[in-house]
Design a protein around this nucleic acid. Structure first.
Lengths: 194, 194
DNA sequence: GTCCGCATGTAAGTAGTTACATGATTCA
DNA sequence: TGAATCATGTAACTACTTACATGCGGAC
């Protein structure tokens, strides 16, 4: 799904400016996509050109005019058709964290421990802040579903990470012990050791 | 993390060809990244040029020579440094499925139900096939961690999806009832209904 | 008899990101 | 004093995906 379709969907949930659309993806919706201003603004311009959204300019002093977009009936029809054209494609994930963990055997245990701790904090933040919605927004079953999904998955991740943080720390201590033991016995550490 | 670093990491876990590297990301490792041949082969060429990997050609009849890559000591050093340069960046996720669910209120309930069912089947497949590892591979704590993580998160997703599939179906039935009720009473369905 | 697996590679195309430009206001 | 929030927009750049080229062997 491209950024234009995504913006169209957000506007189907309620009017918004480009800036506000971006903010929506700071919360649990960041599990969907995290579009940048550089992709949102051109997408909105293009959607307007195609007549799928309309734009109302609210003049503001001392800052650029705020442009609030609304989805048009044509936009709604287009969105429905686009979404139902085929079943959603598989997720595309880029997780540097999991890559780091995959290669963790060759990294400093302290570094790995820090990465895990960081990740737990990140997920905890997500879970704690997910319950609150903008009270101004109309209830959306879809939003409730996605929020609930994010909470469920993040909670599971926290549980797994906490259960295995101990193991990671244990591995770190084992390694330190082995190293000091090597040093005591004055053996040469190296790849070709017996 | 770019594809080159990722390939370097895989080679740190054991020698492999480009084709084999790609296959590794078909299983639970697809939660890290899913690089295509079009990015893997050029990355491998570049890594060789930089001396971070070496390449052994195994001649084969009736198909292109198989090029098996090995990480060099320089490659190992480079990988460690690259990974530990900073804490892993946040995940970047593109989930058309969650986007579809976010906008599900305006979609055909049958379509939504199919999408959910599909997703459950996908995760179930992942969980069921994750336990088996190549027995030829050396044990890797990192790999065990990532496999376990994938299992934990997918299981949580399945549980959430199954718990809410019923709700989705209920919503679908409610909508059908309301529609037939509207038809019976011969009211005009429309946005401006009271 | 057609599709999948094996096996490598290139080139064109796309869809994004990053960085910049501009600038008042408020909070630590 | 410095950073974050609000607010829009453009242009250069990057890094990837898709499609193509090539072709045998085996499974269904």
């Amino acid at each position: 799904m491209n950024v234009a379709t995504l913006c169209l969907g957000i506007l189907a949930l309620g009017d918004a400016s480009g800036y506000e659309i971006k903010k929506r993806f700071d919360g649990p919706l960041k599990r969907i996509q995290q579009p940048s201003f550089g992709s949102i603004y051109p997408a909105l311009t293009e959607l307007t050109r195609e007549g799928l959204v309309s734009c109302t300019v609210h003049a503001q002093e001392k800052r650029p005019d705020k442009k609030v977009y609304s989805i048009t009936p044509a936009g709604r029809a287009h969105l429905k058709a686009a979404l139902q054209e085929s079943l959603p494609a598989p997720d595309r994930i880029h997780s540097d964290f999991l890559a780091t963990m995959l290669f963790s055997d060759m990294l400093s245990p302290d570094f790995v421990a820090r990465a895990v701790k960081d990740r737990i904090a990140f997920y905890r933040d997500m879970v704690d802040h997910t319950q609150c919605e903008h009270p101004s927004d109309a209830y959306s079953g879809g939003r409730a579903f996605v929020h609930g999904y994010a909470r469920a998955v993040c909670s599971a991740a926290i549980a797994y990470l906490e259960a295995h943080a101990a193991e990671t720390r244990q591995a770190a201590e084992d390694l330190r012990e082995r190293r000091s033991s090597d040093a005591t016995h004055a053996t040469q550490p190296g790849d070709s050791a017996p």
